[in-house]
């Protein structure tokens, strides 16, 4: 009998540099009292500074927007782009959906996983915290299959042998 993997946030805490803390503070001030409709924008803005969201930040965001803390939790846990655990400084999203599969995405996924030393089934984060690899549903670039994103950068028509150069020396 298999069990569904329990999806729970980590109890780990973020360590913010003084600069990050100041930036987060400024964001929270900007969203103060704005209410529920600004939750997603606020989470995006904060996470852009911090990389992921821990309980402390979630509580501060709730307080700043003046909404229940559990609502912030509910939203972080629902959306794939919000992270409740540490992720790499750069997120690599490799599409393995239909059109990309037809163009050889399996080899791209394998090449990325091999280069980063990660599991090709589930991806994950490199030990040095440089990269997180995600095997992603359709990224809306099927006309450029196979496709992947490195952070916000788009790369279409990728060939497996290009992967090491694309991901660079950081790994």
């Amino acid at each position: 009998m298999t069990t569904s993997s329990s999806v729970s946030p980590t109890a780990a805490h973020l360590h913010l540099s003084p600069r990050q803390a100041t930036a987060v503070h400024a964001i929270l001030r900007r969203y103060r009292g704005k209410g529920s409709a600004y939750l997603l924008p606020c989470l995006h803005d904060v996470q852009a500074i911090t990389g992921w969201l821990d309980a402390d930040l979630a509580a501060q965001i709730a307080e700043s927007l003046d909404i229940p803390a559990v609502q912030v939790h509910n939203v972080i846990e629902f959306y794939a782009l919000f992270y409740d655990h540490p992720v790499g400084r750069t997120i690599v999203r490799v599409c393995d959906d239909l059109a990309c599969y037809l163009a050889g995405s399996e080899a791209i996924v394998r090449a990325c996983a091999a280069h980063l030393g990660l599991d090709p089934e589930h991806g994950g984060t490199t030990a040095d915290g440089a990269f997180t690899l995600e095997i992603h549903p359709c990224l809306g670039r099927c006309e450029q299959a196979p496709f992947l994103m490195i952070g916000d950068e788009a790369h279409g028509f990728v060939r497996p042998e290009q992967v090491p150069a694309l991901l660079g020396g950081e790994a």
């Binding site: 569904s4 559990v70 939790h73 509910n74």
Partner: peptide
């Protein structure tokens, strides 16, 4: 507002 949700779908 003590109770909420984890995950989505089957999870």
């Amino acid at each position: 507002f003590a109770l909420g949700f984890n995950g989505r779908g089957f999870e």
